[in-house]
């Protein structure tokens, strides 16, 4: 499994990336939505398409919601699972992200177990980790 972790905080990228690596993911990082779109474009050229994008909401240049909209507008990225990982916990925000095309929503702070549960719901965990 491959994951792209998108967050303007290096600390958060490291934390999320580290948990995902423990679950067997190959992880790449991006610091904002535009960098993530660039990473997807570059990845496509080398055959690296992520199964999962973990996306912060509040980021400079291009925020997480704009990124979700951009990915959903690209038919070539239809298979990528999008999960918001953010401090934004208002119901209106969650509805907005899901309506835009995000598949799941995880509110910071979260535990590794909470992330694992979300990945299991999405069918993105290897059996040995789910067990």
């Amino acid at each position: 499994m491959r994951a792209l972790v998108i967050d303007d905080s290096r600390a958060m990228r490291r934390i999320v990336g580290s948990i995902l690596k423990d679950f067997g993911f190959e992880v790449r990082e991006a610091g904002d939505g535009q960098q993530a779109l660039d990473a997807l474009q570059e990845g496509k050229a080398e055959g690296w398409v992520p199964d999962l994008c973990c996306i912060d909401w509040n980021m400079p240049v291009m925020d997480g919601l704009q990124f979700v909209v951009a990915v959903r507008a690209n038919p070539e990225l239809r298979q990528v699972t999008l999960m918001m990982v953010t401090t934004e916990s208002e119901t209106g925000r969650i509805v907005k992200a899901l309506a835009a095309g995000a598949h799941e929503y995880l509110i910071k702070p979260f535990t590794a177990d909470a992330l694992r549960d979300k990945l299991a719901l999405l069918g993105l965990l290897p059996e040995e980790v789910s067990a």
Binding site: M59, T86, E88
Partner: peptide, 28 residues
């Protein structure tokens, strides 16, 4: 700076959620 900023960000986001909304959060 990044770690302290992210702590402030997570604190801010969770505090925002108990205040009247809708509100928006700035960058750390």
């Amino acid at each position: 700076a990044d770690a302290l900023g992210e702590l402030a960000n997570v604190l801010g986001g969770n505090i925002k959620s108990v205040l009247p909304g809708p509100s928006s959060l700035g960058l750390p």
